[in-house]
Amino acid sequence: MAKVKTLPVLAPDTVPCCPPLNERPLTAEEAVRTAVMFKALGDPVRLRLFSAVASHPGGEVCVCDIPDVGVSQPTVSHHLKKLREAGLLASERRGTWVYYRVEPSVLAAMGGLLTTAAS
């Protein structure tokens, strides 16, 4: 099986990677990290998959329980892999099924980036 390189947005329990966009200009490293995240979410199917995982009761979902997003199962797997590589999803294999979850720190980072900086 091929190794997948993951670009972590945040390690669990850390401060968001980047300041709010109106606080100061992003550094080159922050811009790269942020662009990877937004590029992965720039596809409508990936955005729907991310939303399906993030909003699933219990905080995680089996790939077998992800609702139909209008593409074939191999295409769903491809898009889930892209979201994992961008550091937006974590996955765990349990038997024959893979379970996906969005780490709370990822949502905090996304929210923090788009929040207005305190004055």
Rank of each mutant, 00 (worst) to 15 (best):
S105M: 02
D43I: 00
V9W: 02
A52L: 00
P44C: 12
K3M: 08
A109T: 08
R101T: 00
P19N: 06
G111A: 09
V61T: 04
P8N: 12
L26F: 09
M1R: 06
L113R: 12
S51A: 08
A109H: 08
L83P: 10
E23K: 10
V45T: 09
V63H: 06
G112F: 09
V76I: 03
A54P: 07
V45D: 04
C62H: 00
S91Q: 05
M1Q: 11
A31L: 14
S77D: 15
V53T: 02
A117F: 08
A52G: 09
L113W: 14
V15Y: 01
S72D: 12
Q73A: 13
K39A: 13
P44H: 03
P67C: 04
W97V: 15
V32D: 15
T115W: 13
V76D: 00
S55A: 03
A54L: 12
A54R: 11
D68Y: 06
S105L: 06
S91L: 01
P19R: 09
W97A: 13
V76N: 05
L26R: 06
M1S: 07
V4R: 13
G95Q: 09
L88D: 12
P104K: 00
V71G: 09
G95N: 00
A90Q: 10
V61A: 01
V106M: 03
A109C: 09
C17W: 13
R84V: 14
S55G: 10
G95W: 08
V32F: 14
F38P: 10
P16F: 04
A40I: 11
C62L: 07
H56P: 04
L114I: 13
D13Q: 05
G58V: 00
A2T: 14
K3V: 06
V36W: 15
K5V: 13
A108F: 06
C64H: 03
G95F: 01
E103G: 09
R84L: 11
C64N: 14
L21E: 03
G58R: 04
A54Q: 04
L113F: 15
D43C: 12
R84G: 06
F50A: 03
D43L: 07
D13R: 05
R84T: 11
E23I: 14
C18L: 09
M37V: 14
Y100N: 01
E23R: 11
L49T: 02
P25Y: 12
L47H: 06
A31T: 09
T96F: 15
C18M: 09
A28I: 11
G42C: 10
V45C: 11
A117T: 11
T34H: 15
T6L: 07
C64W: 05
T115L: 15
D65F: 05
G70C: 02
R33T: 05
C62V: 01
A118F: 13
W97R: 07
S91N: 13
A11N: 08
G111E: 13
K82Y: 13
E30T: 05
R93E: 10
H79S: 03
V71M: 06
C64A: 11
T115F: 12
K3G: 11
V61D: 01
A31I: 04
H56F: 02
